[in-house]
Design a protein around this nucleic acid. Sequence first.
DNA 1: TCTGGGGTCCTAGGACCC
DNA 2: TCTGGGGTCCTAGGACCC
Length: 427
Amino acid sequence: MLSKTPIFVLVDCNNFYASCERVANPSLEGKPLVVLSNNDGIIVARSNEVKALGIPMGAPLFKCKDVLQNAGARVFSSNYELYDDLSGRVISVLKTFTDNVEVYSIDEAFMEIADLPVEKYTDFGNAIREKVKLETGIPVSVGIAGTKTLAKAASELAKKNKQYGGVLSFVGLSELEIDAFLSKLPVEDVWGIGRQYTKLLNAHNVTNALEFKNLYPAFVKKKMTVGGLRTQMELKGVSCFELEMGVSPKKGICSSRSFGKPVTEITGLREAVSVYVSRACEKLRSQGSVAAGISVFILTSRFVDRQKKYFGVRHKKLLSYTNSTAIFIESAFDILARIFRQGYLYKKAGVFIYDIKQDTSYQHSLFNYANNEKFSRLSGLVDDINRRHGKESVFYASSGCTRDWRMSRKYLSSEDVFGIKLFATAK
DNA sequence: TCTGGGGTCCTAGGACCC
DNA sequence: TCTGGGGTCCTAGGACCC
């Protein structure tokens, strides 16, 4: 018997960043290993050995440095060039099975399949797992079911329960059999249920996915809006989320970073804001869009006394749509001058570009910038040069040359946080 | 000393219009 | 002056995702 309805396959890379470091450097295999966030602040990826130590996702490095060192763990800054590259390779392998691949995130993809006999799906999952491992070195978990949320649930269970061998398929199972699996999945591991909803549900004695599935829909709708209701429907096997293959243009583009060390003067902030605006505008142009809104924000550390804390933000509407870095930088500097207060230790700044439209659809304004066209061509030229000759071959002088506020990435590839030497990362 | 970054969707409430 | 409904658009804020 063939499956009647479309079947979703979720492929989830295990401990993705940690696995990437191992692909780049096989001598790390079997050793405890973590990868840090930007600025080497918190832990964003852990190998299984580190998970076993009880170190949670998102833990600040300074709080668990001792535990990690005692366990002989290796600690790395994140290396997004490497992760992007390997992510692309994994997707290429998936596309050899079907064209229906939705790239959901850097380490996850949904596939849609319709024409296999129901008993063949587990084999299909195993084939994916083996081929991805063989051709990229990345271990993955696979979940297969009639809805995206159930496929996610299956992959969670596959990842956490060794006996499934990394693949779990709900296809062909009775509702009762699926319920048995859902009762083993903590409600906080359901896709769409985060920290706040978990708290709410726990307070109503709902602790696993099955209990959530059996809640009154009216209660779910009232407390968790239609999003929660859709999640519940999906657990019941009613598909509410389709496969989304096209890349839709961003509706808002944010660029922000914490500083490697605090900035006190407006000159440093101007450099940073200039860099972030350049980055955001580059993204804007690369998706063929223009925009007419910009926000700038600056803030101090969250971990200081109240009187030393400051958060400044302001928005500005431009007179017309543009994608010119120069025009956005000018506006950003206006805003910055208004929100800057002397006497604070700034830890982070960022810009947000909004009110985005596709290039072709915007109306020319009566008050169009006199030099909009010219600036646009200039920005396009800058993008070309940077594509050809590498990032930031050309940049705005306002972005500065010293940039001593730059984020730190101290443990990139060659030497980790404990000073242990490694081979250079293969690229 | 050291605590990430970049998105999406939904709702409530206010402004404004007829 | 007061009374009222119904609609749209926009924004802020809160939830979620990885």
